[in-house]
Design a binder for these strands. Structure first.
Lengths: 194, 194
DNA sequence: CGTCAACTTGACACGGTGTCAAGCTCAATG
DNA sequence: CATTGAGCTTGACACCGTGTCAAGTTGACG
């Protein structure tokens, strides 16, 4: 299934990512991806059963390329106190731009394609788990606002650093990435701590 | 154009809203709306040139039905101090569920349909103006956090109370509407004030 | 040489939007 | 009363993107 021709498969994934990163989501059709990959549209279906699967595979490809798990383990997990919170916001916030294209495409498919929905939810609950562990630490150190339960705090933090909010601030409000990160760090502290 | 047959037109708008409120957005096709309105699919195009226009008309219809402008004028504009902020969050936050269906549909069309994008942006900048006036008041009373410019504060408040965030907390995190409002009021204060 | 996998071309079904043409119905008007 | 025109109907069709199917090509490797 994926033993020999890593080349073509990898080329497809890279093309998909490149197209999604640059253009409007709707303008990334199967035929566009095929063209950029240098193969026929039909050959795409020899590698991925449908568009949703291709997009999901692209997210996993990006996770691998950027070794996001490792970065979380190295920078967020060992941090203490408020640093843990700001490190989480910074690491994730700097990863969002890299997955934004494919995320947007997947989110656009969510209504109507249950598989796409499940795939995106799956990626996002991974982030949620990390947010929960950050909240747990705050709680242990007595820094969590007394007005918030752990679940509520996690929900708020997770929503605060959502891809949609990044999109809103970076694109609609034209913030720089730097400004986004610094204000988000501050916002996370204001929102969650006493 | 819209002088005589208010009945059919109104029936279409109501059907659209009813369908959008209840089901998955993708499953609200022109034919579904026609069926519920008791007319043929083609007759829909005698009233609205395309799907985007129909959805936009539905938002305006909802604005009228709920007299949202009036509510803002009565509850947010006259309020003072932090009350202005919490009133804004509460009024808008309680309006979101009413427009959520059509908003979702419009947002789903935004990529690929420039008209839909423009329409939704237009509605949202109306909210943004109110957010800006709230921030202005905070500033005048010296309550705005010194770390935020007026634009930054408006951007943050507007993003905080976005339809997407409402969706995230109410649906993904399964918060009640009441909990959503009370936490949002608190979050707005924590985020914007010194 | 034969075989197999990767890929090609070309045709097609499906579903949703939007268009076009022709005809029906009924109320208001001359 | 006959005509007109607005509002609606049925039915056919073009377009687009996804996904499927069938038959043929190419090239590496035994």
């Amino acid at each position: 299934m994926s033993s020999t021709n890593l080349t073509t498969r990898a080329r497809i994934l890279k093309s998909t990512q490149d197209l999604l990163e640059a253009g409007r989501v709707t303008e990334v059709r199967m035929s566009d991806i095929a063209k950029l990959s240098g193969i026929s549209r039909q050959a795409l279906y020899l590698h991925f059963p449908n568009r949703a699967d291709l997009l999901v595979a692209t997210t996993r490809y990006l996770d691998e390329v950027h070794a996001i798990e490792t970065v979380f383990d190295q920078r967020v997990v060992p941090a203490k106190g408020l640093d843990k919170l700001t490190e989480f916001v910074a690491v994730w916030g700097n990863y969002i731009p890299k997955i934004h294209g494919v995320g947007k495409a997947l989110m656009a498919m969510m209504d109507g394609d249950a598989e796409a929905r499940a795939a995106w939810d799956n990626r996002m609950t991974a982030v949620r788990r990390i947010a929960a562990s950050v909240v747990e630490s705050l709680q242990d150190e007595g820094r969590l606002s007394p007005e918030l339960s752990k679940k509520e705090a996690t929900d708020l933090l997770w929503t605060l650093v959502s891809v949609r909010n990044w999109e809103s601030l970076r694109h609609d409000c034209r913030w720089s990435q730097k400004r986004y990160i610094s204000h988000m760090e501050r916002a996370a502290i204001a929102l969650l701590t006493a």
